[in-house]
Computed example of a mutant assay.
Amino acid sequence: MSERDDDGARADAQLARSLALAAGALLLEIRARGTLSGKALGDAGDREANTLIIDRLRAERPDDFILSEESLDDGRRCAARRVWIIDPLDGTREYAAGLDDWAVHIGLSVDGVPHVGSVAVPARDAVHTTDDPVHVRGASRSPPRIVVSRSRAPDIARLVGETMHATMIPMGSAGAKAMAVVDGRAEIYLHDGGQYEWDNCAPAAVAMAAGLHASRIDGSPLVYNCADPLLPDLLICRPELAGPVLAAIAAARR
């Protein structure tokens, strides 16, 4: 990467971090108002955070395209090199319920690769960004811990957990689960059954910057800015566990 490219990546990462923090602060403020609850609170958070992020991206990166869970998709993005992939409120149910395991995702795909990302977990006062990664250290905990959906753990995660004698940790949003692996509260995040690019672009970018493994559950690379943004499965884990986890997945799917 040239010095100019490196400077550009830093600027993009700083923007991603700024957007994640600003949207997170807004979401906390909306919840603290106490005037909305339930679905109405979640809808307001989605809408207002999305507007804040979109407006700033259009002002600061006018030549880039945007793919957001909360906005109409512009198909012209498929021909673009740079596409911001955002989820202004990942974990709307947890947010509306007053829990802390929801997140803001700001990712940037360049030529289909998760190039830059920032994931804020505002209710935990945490933010992780690709230009300031927390690198994994030390040996993996044994048995490993797998973060899974609080409402429905994927069958594949349950089967891999049994094979590896893992402890299952229920948690809310995709971003919160991925960041639990980044910050060492878990070793594996394994999902199968329906995600979109905005659910995992920023988390994957942050995880890889931290030295973690991130891929599809068949081991193939994560590819972004596809015409169909469905990206249904994801593995984020400690690098030394990638081989055993992928082998356990393959065995479970036979």
Rank of each mutant, 00 (worst) to 15 (best):
D64G: 08
D64I: 07
F65Q: 13
F65K: 13
L67F: 10
S68H: 07
E69T: 09
E70C: 05
S71W: 15
S71T: 15
S71N: 15
D73E: 15
D74T: 07
R77A: 06
R77W: 05
C78E: 15
A79Y: 11
A79M: 12
A79H: 14
A80E: 10
A80S: 13
R81M: 12
R81G: 11
R82Y: 07
V83C: 08
I85M: 08
I86E: 03
I86R: 02
I86Y: 03
D87I: 04
L89T: 02
L89C: 06
D90H: 03
D90G: 04
G91W: 03
G91N: 06
T92P: 02
T92R: 01
T92V: 02
R93Y: 02
R93G: 00
A97N: 07
W102N: 00
A103C: 03
A103I: 00
A103W: 01
H105S: 00
H105A: 00
I106S: 00
G107E: 01
S109E: 01
D111H: 03
V113G: 03
H115T: 06
H115M: 03
H115Q: 07
H115Y: 07
H115E: 09
S118D: 04
S118Q: 04
V119R: 00
V119N: 03
A120S: 07
A120K: 00
V121W: 04
V121R: 10
A123F: 05
A123D: 09
A123C: 07
R124I: 06
D125P: 06
D125C: 11
H128V: 01
T129L: 06
D131I: 07
D132H: 12
D132Q: 13
P133V: 05
V134D: 09
V134E: 12
H135F: 10
H135V: 12
V136H: 14
V136N: 09
A139D: 14
A139H: 13
A139R: 15
S140G: 14
S140T: 13
R141G: 11
R141L: 12
S142W: 14
S142D: 15
S142F: 13
S142R: 15
P143H: 08
P143N: 09
P143Q: 10
P144L: 11
P144M: 11
P144W: 11
R145N: 06
I146T: 11
S151E: 13
S151M: 11
R152N: 13
A153N: 10
P154T: 05
P154V: 04
D155A: 14
D155S: 13
I156C: 10
R158P: 09
L159R: 15
G161W: 03
